[in-house]
Amino acid sequence: MKQIKFSTEIYMGSDALSFLGTFENERICIVTDKFMVESGMIDYVISEINDSNAYEAFMDIVPDPTIENVVSGVEKLAEFKPTQIIGFGGGSAIDASKAIKLMGVELGLIEAAKLIIIPTTSGTGSEVTNFSVITNKKENLKYPLVDDRLQPEVAILDPRLVKSVPPVITADTGMDVLTHALEAYVSTEATVFSDALAEKAVELIFNYLERAYKNGEDMEAREQVHYASCLAGLAFNQASLGLCHGIAHTIGGKLHLAHGRINGVLLPSIVQYNGNESQRALERYALLAKKQGLSNSRGKMGVRNLINEITSLRSKLNMPSNFIEAGLTKEDVAPFISQISEQALLDPTTKTNPKAPTVEDVRKIVTNLF
């Protein structure tokens, strides 16, 4: 028996932030980073909070938030005692706010405050998932946390907040969306419900990501990519992910390359690997290629067409096709290749890959991209 559960309320559109105006007599802690404050982006949120509420900002979130970062946030929340927690920003702020709430509740330092997520990038889909990724800086490891208590109560999708995202981040985060959708689609836990979400996310990314990358003022494209990110998040929250994320988490922890960029490098190779090793994955990729209108998409030709579509989009986004183009060298990865290969198998997202990989499989996939 499988359970399908959609427990996050989603508010969407250019007036979605007005939902914050419904709060009365709340204690609101906004978890964000200094850029959101210094750039004035936080004003979008603060302007909607009426005077009956008290609010404070914890703005010390860093890229790839660490355990120490989370502990500092818990201390802040324990002191302020919020009834509402708003995670505002990109993936790091969102992951941190979720982990801060979970740790605070676990330690009995804060009550179970309502968690509201407002993303300012279109990539993680974390506003609708029970996932969070936290970094252990000492061990250079990224830990994917999976817990129902990480599930936000509310997600607010306002396309105005992603209008100023730079092209390179638009590309990286958009490729992350595509990876989420494709991995959910061939996951061993996929269902017809997650399939529908993943298929629509793939369609929107192929139709709108290049437009959003080339012209940030194209609000139709911005909005559709923002929604694609959420749809892909809903898909993988039901079906989980796969080997691409398992490897990306380990490489990101060791070599500190942007997560979406790592996925962009890996994704065609992962699709090829899964298509070669799993008949089910081959059939699923071919079906998806057909649904995207790619001609002659049967069997291995369908997989090849899908890979070509991914690499074509990646090229249009000026993204690297291998790790050398991404700025790494063989010498960078050599000391870590064994650890990356072993730890990728232990990552919880790898468990639902359509083919259970070996250490040698991972090593080949990674080293072939240098």
Rank of each mutant, 00 (worst) to 15 (best):
I324H: 08
D347G: 02
H259N: 09
L115F: 06
L282H: 07
I134P: 03
E223C: 09
T121N: 05
P152V: 02
I85S: 02
F58N: 01
L288D: 02
F236D: 00
N215M: 05
V303L: 05
N274G: 06
T22P: 05
G89M: 05
D218Q: 12
V303M: 06
S39G: 09
N263M: 07
Q339N: 11
F236G: 00
I4T: 15
F80M: 10
S338F: 12
I270G: 03
K98G: 04
T120H: 04
G246K: 02
G242N: 04
V71A: 14
S7F: 11
Y285T: 03
D33G: 14
T358K: 06
G73H: 01
H180S: 07
L241P: 02
A78F: 07
E360T: 13
S321Q: 14
N353F: 03
F193V: 14
G299R: 04
K163I: 14
I307W: 01
L141M: 12
I49N: 04
S97Q: 11
V359I: 14
E48P: 04
S295I: 13
L294N: 07
L145P: 01
V271Y: 00
T188V: 11
G327H: 11
H259W: 08
K254Y: 10
F236S: 01
F193P: 01
E79V: 09
K200T: 10
K351G: 06
Q84E: 14
T350A: 04
L345N: 02
A112D: 15
V186P: 00
R298D: 11
Y44D: 07
K5W: 11
E210G: 07
Y273A: 01
N50H: 13
E203N: 08
L241E: 00
I365A: 02
G123V: 04
T32S: 15
E24K: 15
S338Q: 14
P348A: 11
V71S: 10
E220N: 14
P82K: 01
S164E: 15
A113Q: 07
A212P: 01
R222Q: 13
E56C: 10
T311K: 09
Y285R: 08
K76E: 11
K34C: 08
I28D: 00
L313N: 03
L313G: 01
K163N: 10
E24Y: 12
P167V: 04
T83W: 09
N308I: 09
S278I: 07
N353H: 09
N353G: 08
F206C: 10
S92T: 04
D15L: 13
T179E: 03
K142D: 00
E183D: 09
N296M: 10
V202L: 05
E342F: 10
E217W: 09
L243Q: 03
R211Y: 12
K81A: 13
D332S: 13
P82S: 12
L141P: 01
E75P: 04
